[in-house]
Design a binder for these strands. Sequence first.
DNA 1: TGCGGAATTTCGGCATACCTAAATTTACAA
DNA 2: TTGTAAATTTAGGTATGCCGAAATTCCGCA
Lengths: 245, 245
Amino acid sequence: MSPAARNSPGLSSDSASVQDYVKVIYAFTEWQDKPVTMTALAARLKVANSSVTEMVRKLVDLGLANHKPYNPVELTPEGLRLALLMVRRHRLLETYLVHELGYGWDEVHNEAELLEHTVSDTLVDRMSARLGHPDRDPHGDPIPSADGTIELPAAHVLSTLDEGHQGRVARISDANPHLLRYLSDEEIRLDTAVTMLGRKPFGGALTVQVGSGGRVRELDLGDELAASVWVMTEGRHEGCTLEKS
Amino acid sequence: MSPAARNSPGLSSDSASVQDYVKVIYAFTEWQDKPVTMTALAARLKVANSSVTEMVRKLVDLGLANHKPYNPVELTPEGLRLALLMVRRHRLLETYLVHELGYGWDEVHNEAELLEHTVSDTLVDRMSARLGHPDRDPHGDPIPSADGTIELPAAHVLSTLDEGHQGRVARISDANPHLLRYLSDEEIRLDTAVTMLGRKPFGGALTVQVGSGGRVRELDLGDELAASVWVMTEGRHEGCTLEKS
DNA sequence: TGCGGAATTTCGGCATACCTAAATTTACAA
DNA sequence: TTGTAAATTTAGGTATGCCGAAATTCCGCA
Ligand SMILES: [Mn+2]
Ligand SMILES: [Mn+2]
Ligand SMILES: [Mn+2]
Ligand SMILES: [Mn+2]
């Protein structure tokens, strides 16, 4: 079966590869703001640098990206629109698998990575409806709405939390399943309260207090862990809204 | 993401095309027993004859099919195993979409045709469990078990039903969505009782009585329709079992 | 100011899965 | 038996996406 015109314009017409490239380019700047280099894309996509060069040229031809030779890549409004649609699919799929089919939050990423290219808009919408139109996925990543709007929570990396201050877990990078499993085991999940106690001397681990009410624990966090967890401090709720095109 | 080894041996290693060819070869002989010709495959797959020749050679190389030049194709036990796994995926997906996500039985085929190549064994098994391990899909087609066993109901094409005899709808070909929608509108679905009244003279339409208890109707069926509906006469329940390898 | 290493692009190739047009083989009918 | 039309295969090509190796470009530092 050929990818027919059963979806949003400029969605089913794009190959799975194009979809993944665009999505990765977007994801690169969702929580940071560094320039997106060819090498970085190659590493993330597990592909040779030369392959990225070629595909980026294609993205430019398709009007999805802007690129001047030897410079970083940027999405066009058109590319951003496609990226947000793909991100929506990916995150809704993850959420659906966790809430409706009993997956663990460390098990859903690969499944969603493939399914996102195959599900129809109809299916995505039905899953969203079934879930009550959730606004974040199991890892706390915001789910773009069907019209291509996304609202980023005003969360910060845990390691930047000031000593003595408290926050709630708002997001956890889903890059490392082992890390996710560890956090589950430690009963740290979205919205878990965390208080920064301080850093052990000489570049040591961060120490945090986990939980708020009854059972409170202290926990040392390694560097990767501290860099993978985002927290939201109470009160603040601004966030920032990205619109399509 | 490359098709990794997250599935049954010899499943994720096969391309979507290989999976579709094998599945179509199987489907061809599920309800009939004619030799599977190149031309028939080409027509069903909407592909040039020469493409089929090439791909069949590949299937032979992969040990999935037997083929002597200018002769019909047959699946090897290995090929049958793969085909039944694909059929299981396809039919469970259709069933899931209908029962859990509100799809109509005329809307699920294309969606399943794509998803079947992308879902993991784990996902299929969870869907099956969620559905209570159903043994037939929305069109009455039997769902192979996870170990590759399928039980074909002893159904016959409606047009072969003897005059005056009654049966229940056991299967409807899902080839034509319009036909499925028409049957829904006429409130004919699986297990609906049907009694053969006879054929209008001079090659005319079949006339059947639909329903059994209270509201009974007469209905004329065109040729395509009569050939697309299978019925099971009461009492008989033998069926036949196909095993893997 | 120019050098050298890193990043990027270019080049030639490979695998998959298609296609059209041109053989080739087969089967059946005269 | 032989011709011929249909079915099938072969040959030559295209489009995607990927690769490694070889150029090229860039940038910071001596
Ligand atoms: Mn993907
Ligand atoms: Mn996620
Ligand atoms: Mn398919
Ligand atoms: Mn079906």
